[in-house]
Design a protein around this nucleic acid. Structure first.
Lengths: 199, 199
DNA sequence: ACCTGAACACCGTTCAAGT
DNA sequence: ACCTGAACACCGTTCAAGT
């Protein structure tokens, strides 16, 4: 229901410029980067940024939507090529590496996927936009986790959302370790799968 | 080596006021609360706050030092009363609940315990102060993890720091789930110990 | 309909002036 | 030696004025 009428030419152009600028600035300074910076780099008034993206989350969502969709799509590709248990692990690995290496992706998915959000905001359009990214990832996770559970490869008493939250936690663990390469994340991920118990 | 000379009476009093005010404000608004607020509530100039606590981390450290020491001390109490494996799990549970319920404690331990810190800061006094809290918790974790490993209750290929990072991640998972009561954290913790694999 | 940029409120940090 | 609070730089957000 979003955009029935096409945007005015200058609006469309400014939106494009903002997205490009935001991608660059987020990549350089992380998801908390200055919005002023983004508007300046896009050569656009700050008000214009707010008109197009009323919240930082909305901007993050727009910038990373394609990446998120690509990750979600990978779930089906992987599921078709592997056993359910191995497929889940492989996909979680790709997801985690993405969150770790693409700055901003973790911030976006952290709030979009895991549910609870900041205290300040009311449930408005921004939340709706979040859901686009969140649904994508949650849907993929649900398919893979359910399949793995039916195949007896994953415990039946964990929900897909639990798995996503724990992966988010694992990525946080890697960040605080200062290890942003894939090997560290994969190691923590396998610890999570197999558990710390047992010698 | 810190304070050879005793502080001037007014300085000591202001330090006390700042700590009390900070504890209150952190409890109300979280670890990112306004430092101005704290100075105002302590009825002290902002410069005084900076004189006593040059960084937010230094202030967090001072406010929560006693809590952290208490948690670390619990490790030995628990270790004396239980089998090594059960002791580790019990202590990690207490640690996680503390980080989840005492606002600010997670922020403090997140950076103090897990090692890597913000990009901006140089390695100065604040880092040294961090280490007081960090050493406390790391030391306790090392004793419990080593004991559990020797008893064959925990895999040998995980380091104590890995365990702390993963617990930090689990707490993050709980936060994003909006569940701040102990049961949620204990559940995630047991998932971490036993692993997600196996039906 | 959309854009602009000044204006406002807020915060962290520093420092000259005071005692 | 320590305290104070004004001053500065920066950021997010809004909105009256423009096209």
């Amino acid at each position: 229901m979003a955009q029935v009428k096409p945007m005015r030419a200058d609006a469309r152009r400014n939106r494009e410029r903002l997205l490009r600028a935001a991608a660059g600035v987020f990549a350089e300074h992380g998801a908390g980067a200055s919005l002023d910076d983004i508007a300046r780099r896009a050569e656009v008034g700050t008000g214009t940024l707010y008109r197009h993206f009323p919240t930082r989350q909305a901007l993050l969502e727009a910038v990373y939507l394609e990446s998120v969709e690509a990750i979600a799509a990978r779930a089906d590709t992987i599921a078709a090529a592997r056993q359910p248990g191995a497929a889940l692990v492989a996909w979680l690995g790709e997801l985690a590496v993405g969150m770790l290496q693409v700055r901003g992706l973790k911030a976006l998915l952290g709030t979009a996927v895991t549910g609870a959000e900041a205290v300040a905001g009311r449930a408005d359009g921004a939340d709706r936009a979040d859901r686009a990214c969140g649904d994508c990832v949650r849907g993929a996770a649900e398919r893979l986790v359910r399949a793995a559970q039916e195949a007896g490869a994953v415990r039946g008493d964990v929900a897909p959302i639990d798995v996503l939250r724990l992966v988010h936690g694992v990525v946080t663990a890697c960040e605080s370790a200062g290890e942003t390469d894939g090997t560290a994340v994969r190691r923590y991920l396998s610890l999570l799968m197999e558990g710390l118990t047992r010698a």
